[in-house]
Design a protein around this nucleic acid. Structure first.
Lengths: 176, 176
DNA sequence: ACCTGAACACCGTTCAAGT
DNA sequence: ACCTGAACACCGTTCAAGT
């Protein structure tokens, strides 16, 4: 037995994190595995399914006691791998609601609160990752080069911004 | 003068609406225009720029007096063309904040309120469009076939769901 | 200015065939 | 069961050349 499905998923996540979603092709995953592209189809029916399996892996272990904790945990899971928010958001649209995460949230804040929190969390994470990549090679207007070089200022402000938006939604949920 | 940049954008939007983002390739836009693929590069530097121009066109005319009206107007613009939410969300990430729409919102509800509302509106619209497409050929679990056939029930519930989430965020914003 | 034709370096996926 | 090799129908983009 040369490779297993778990090997394929792990290799795909490595390629994703190193090169980004745009270059995470079946052919590249295959070559990262030292195998022909066609070999992947023995483990996975198609690319869409592979992306869904990657998404499951990315959000595996997300948890928390309250709504805010759950959202923070989800957010940090999405930000842990390059383009993670994109991968999970796209895949979650097909497999309804990110692996029961929506149900867990719904139990805490109701279905409307759950979807509102999820849309916000995914949107904010996607925006953060897009900005990160723009800074990586483009020098975004209005960005302090030193702060970018330090690598801490952008994520610090992103964290604070996320908390402020979260507070707004939670305040709205409390009003009933 | 055979074709202008506006012709290219219009053709691209037609292809998008008929076939979806997945099949909205430079080659298909070219053939919709009766022209060779390479001809497009006389009007547009690359595909990413064409998508940004399409996004500008999609949200052209979005407006409103208050935050809720602005969000509703944006939402209906996104839903008016197939995969519109995806196209605008991706392009808006590069050209900051959907053509000053974020600034307009920020003036009404502050910067955190603006981004929270935008993340929510884009996320909800994307989810609605993904569901629509799943229903189009896959029969989503838990969906009433008659309601799908009628074509009104899904969008009616989507509208109501959008309003409920909007209310939550606006209530949270009012609390300050 | 606008377009053609040909090429380059890629894609996802299928399928017979090997071990 | 797992993989190779070759093929098919696509991509985005470049570039010389035509009118």
């Amino acid at each position: 037995m040369r490779n297993t499905r778990a090997d394929v998923i792990a290799a795909a996540l490595r390629v994703l994190d190193e090169h980004g979603l745009e270059f995470c092709s079946m052919r590249r995953v295959a070559s990262a595995l030292g195998v022909q592209p066609s070999a992947l189809y023995h483990h996975v029916p198609d690319k869409q399914t592979l992306l869904a399996l990657m998404a499951d892996e990315i959000i595996r272990g997300v948890g928390g006691d309250d709504a805010a904790g759950l959202c923070r945990s989800l957010r940090s899971a999405l930000l842990a791998v390059r383009d993670g928010a994109d991968v999970v958001a796209t895949a979650a649209a097909f497999r309804l609601g990110a692996s029961g995460l929506e149900q867990r949230l719904a139990r805490l804040v109701g279905p409307d609160g759950a979807s509102t929190l999820l849309f916000y969390t995914f949107g904010h994470a996607q925006s953060t990752q897009t900005r990160r990549q723009a800074e990586r090679f483009g020098a975004l207007p209005g960005t302090d080069p030193d702060a970018v070089a330090a690598g801490s200022a952008p994520s610090q402000e992103a964290d604070a911004s996320f908390e402020r938006g979260l507070d707004i939604i939670l305040a709205g949920l409390g009003r009933r």
